[in-house]
Nucleic acid binder design. Sequence first.
RNA 1: CGGGACGUAGCUCAGCCCGGUAGAGCACUUGGUUUGGGACCAAGACGUCGCAGGUUCAAAUCCUGUCGUCCCGACCA
Length: 581
Amino acid sequence: MLWSQTFIPTLKETPSDAEIVSHQLLLRAGLIRKLTGGLYTFLPMGLRTLRKIEQIIREEMNRAGGIEVLMPALQPPEIWQQSGRYETASGVLFKVRDSAKKEWVLGPTHEEVITTLAASEINSYRQLPKNFYQIQTKFRDEIRPRFGLMRAKEFLMKDAYSFDTSDEGAMASYKRMYDAYTRIFTRCGLQAFPVEADTGVIGGNYSHEFMVPAETGENDVAYCEACHYAANIEKAISGLPKTAARDLGPEPEQFPTPGAITIESLAKAPFGIPANRQIKTLVYIADGQPVLILIRGYDQLNESKFMARTGAIEARPADVKNPTDLVHFTTLGALPGSLGAVRSVPLTWKVFADERLRGANEMTTGANSDGFHLRNVSIERDIRVSDWFDLRTVRAGEPCAKCAKPLKIRRAIEVGHVFKLGTKYSEKLNATFVAEDGSPHPAVMGCYGIGVSRTLQAIIEQSNDKDGIIWPLSVAPYHVCITPLNYSPEGQPMTLGLQLLAELTAAGIEVILDDRDERPGVKFKDSELVGFPLRVNLGEKSLAKGEVELKPRTGPVKCVPIAEAAAEVIAWFHTEKAHYV
RNA sequence: CGGGACGUAGCUCAGCCCGGUAGAGCACUUGGUUUGGGACCAAGACGUCGCAGGUUCAAAUCCUGUCGUCCCGACCA
């Protein structure tokens, strides 16, 4: 390919609407252009890399027994109503109307479609197991698209759905996908690691996310370097001990705490009550109902855990500025800062407490009277707790639940997610098969996603320097950029360049030749910005010495005799390629 | 949806506070000189100052509304 014959609109300056480095480089290197917020056009260099990532995914999915299909992006809302997700996923569902005013949805995912297919086509255990996948555009009505391709309204995703006859079979399918994902990301030159994950709206009971460590990621991951425990913060646990039980003391006693409305202020003089001897009382609105959540003063509530354990679809803190919420505080008798669960809690309210409070006594908590707290509170004696859950968010430095070594926390980008779904969808959408004994059973499902366009950006986020992108060979838009320095169609740099282009292309290497009439500095900067793994410099100075220069994107220049240039590049290519397969 | 910032040339931005003929750098066009790390000289083209109202003799500038973008939060298979 000749540079002048394709389209690589590089930018010298950083576009002002790009915040993170990968987004800036996507734009500066001419890989994408924004149509509007959350919607992007892939330009030739971006598209080539996207297709390479797709191809790696296809090869590994096929190797793992996947069957490629292509499902409609436009879907009838009825199947979403049938699965129950028309409500639960309404936050991300794009809805459109046709000319007859009938409503349709643009698929954010395809469990409903594939399960509908399975319901009609899979009838016998003899047809199972099956694993269908597709690579397709998804639509999500993101509240806030951001960071370029990271969180877009429309994006490319690989999604796969497995159907098995048994839980064991589903587990084996899950494991195959888990292993395939590990290979896929490795082949993409991406350091991604699996972490235990919350299942969110998708549902199911077992799940891992594949995470790329990056400060700009939108997820926090807790991990242990000693035993390799790793989990999304939404799910992570630690071995932090419970609050120590003391001798059961006297009845709760009210005492004045004027102006002390934070855990910290009660921890200080004159009160001196350690944060972990305080009970923090939160009022939440869970699916419209007020509930109380009790955690230790030291702890932060983990809303994901709360929602996962209670099954709530929507939960938010009650807000004193919201008139309908304010009623709940009035019912309790106090505003945040003096809330507690000992008195005035209506019997209709559920009270959820963190597991680590179980058995705690001699605790201090709000008296439900502004400016007063209660001491000597025994949570089990004095508070009507409806249910005990692990509800707190793990912090860095807490002991690992498995090996007691300190946990670390880091930011990460989610590029893949595997779920064991069970029979949630197959039951609702009637995807049943007849077993050997003639009895009907719902298929046991799993689903497995990879954000293809997000993976592309994650690779850039992880692999760049001050000069631009550093593409892993496996996904680079071109492997080699030939750069004739002194431009002249008849000069030796160009004629030798064209000759090398033909030779290397014939050897299966993807080569672009920068035939632009530009100064060397411009060509150097552009080739480094776009990030080709190897540049071949053809300059009159070195050619006069009978040499060409091979410049790996991240390594030193190597001068080789003209006659050996092609062979050297081919050798380099095969050495590099071996790292990615 | 809450908080904040910003919309001026293709890009990065100045001008706005304090109203008075729309600017710079880069990019682009033409000519010339250059040619191993984003060249130089000369000439040129490029704008409904996001949009709509309002105030005013006069609005990029002040006011109101609206649309859009970005950031933080909420949200997020």
